[in-house]
Nucleic acid binder design. Structure first.
Lengths: 205, 205
DNA sequence: TGTGTTTTGTACCGAACGGTTCCTAAAGCT
DNA sequence: AGCTTTAGGAACCGTTCGGTACAAAACACA
């Protein structure tokens, strides 16, 4: 029925997300979006309602294609331990080639304070990330003290976001290694060695 | 020598800074600034060159009145230890009443990637903060291993910035306490001299 | 082939943008 | 006084903003 859509919503959304990601919400103009999405104004307003709706959809896409992927990576059972997967994540942060930062982090800083709906989704993503850390830690040590588990997972989130900010400033490289070592120490205290063995009695219960 | 200026540059800059702080650079319009600074367009362009120059001046003011104050607080000798001052800083972050976030952090995320001059000043401020942590730690333990000192100071910066991001999302409250405990552990390992704040040392609650 | 439906591209909208230039009144100086 | 500098307001610049209206185009189904 009717003329079929001549572009793919997902592909267009991916491009829109990248523009918002690199320029921020306010600095991104409609022509910026149209150029990146390779559609015209008419198609834009037909497929999405307005600029803000595209931003929300882009945020949702970031959640689906980036955050949930990360969470899945953190909790996927395999030959490696949860601690190793967490350390791998922070290592990847340290060795990132570009300086793209993190769309979630950008949204948190420049949109969340002014848009409750965005704040809500940002919070949900942050908590999903925390849950990823939590599951990875719990996988290594099922009988971990719930308070230690909670603190460690939350602290990992704080470190994760802090590194994302520094990535945007170009200081990531010199900071990430130090942060990585401290994270490693924190993990050692929380779940012990990478093999998951509990070598220190009374340490974590 | 002509008519004297009828407004105070510093006071106007303070107001401008608050507007940029809360709305971001792009979202702040000239009328926004004029209203907050309580000056007219004519005076604006006479005293400052343009919007960007005001932003830079506001950033400089943030450095002078906020960052340097914090650094001075961290390193001021007194009855308390450097560790106590660091913990007090993180405690203050946790108990912040508003959700204003951090202008430095905002600048890092939404301006630094697009303005080399801003990036440079943001980096300088971050490094000044790191230096503040470093001096506080060194004051407590002059013979501290330089590598440990460096790592700890950098990691404190990462935690500091991460908490600022979470403040913008409203998740600060539940995260800050966990982060504070982990920071306390990190400080215990780096300089010792715990004041009993780390209740879990050798005990599990 | 004709009809109905949906998408498409584009011309266009009013409003607001950052920035500039006037100009007059006001306030210091010698 | 007379000179000089600034203040502050208004009008205005060209541009760009997000958003809309509409007719041509492309399909599905009859």
């Amino acid at each position: 029925m009717g003329r079929p859509r001549q572009f793919e919503i997902d592909a267009a959304l991916e491009m829109a997300m990248r523009v918002f990601w690199s320029k921020g919400y306010e600095a991104t103009t409609l022509p910026d979006l149209l150029g990146a999405m390779r559609i015209s104004r008419g198609s834009f307003y037909k497929a999405f309602h307005d600029k803000r709706a595209v931003y929300l959809a882009a945020l949702e896409r970031y959640n689906r294609t980036r955050v949930l992927e990360t969470v899945a990576m953190l909790q996927k059972a395999g030959t490696d331990s949860g601690r190793e997967r967490i350390e791998a994540l922070f290592k990847a942060l340290a060795e990132r080639p570009d300086r793209s930062g993190c769309f979630l982090c950008n949204a948190a800083v420049d949109r969340a304070p002014h848009d409750p709906e965005i704040e809500e989704r940002v919070n949900a993503m942050v908590q999903r990330l925390e849950q990823g850390f939590r599951l990875a830690l719990e996988g290594d040590r099922p009988n971990i003290d719930p308070d230690v588990l909670d603190e460690t997972a939350k602290s990992l989130v704080v470190n994760y976001l802090g590194l994302q900010v520094l990535d945007a400033t170009g200081l990531n490289e010199q900071m990430a290694e130090s942060c990585r070592l401290q994270v490693s120490r924190m993990l050692e205290a929380a779940v012990g060695g990478g093999n998951g063995l509990d070598e220190r009695a009374g340490d974590n219960r």
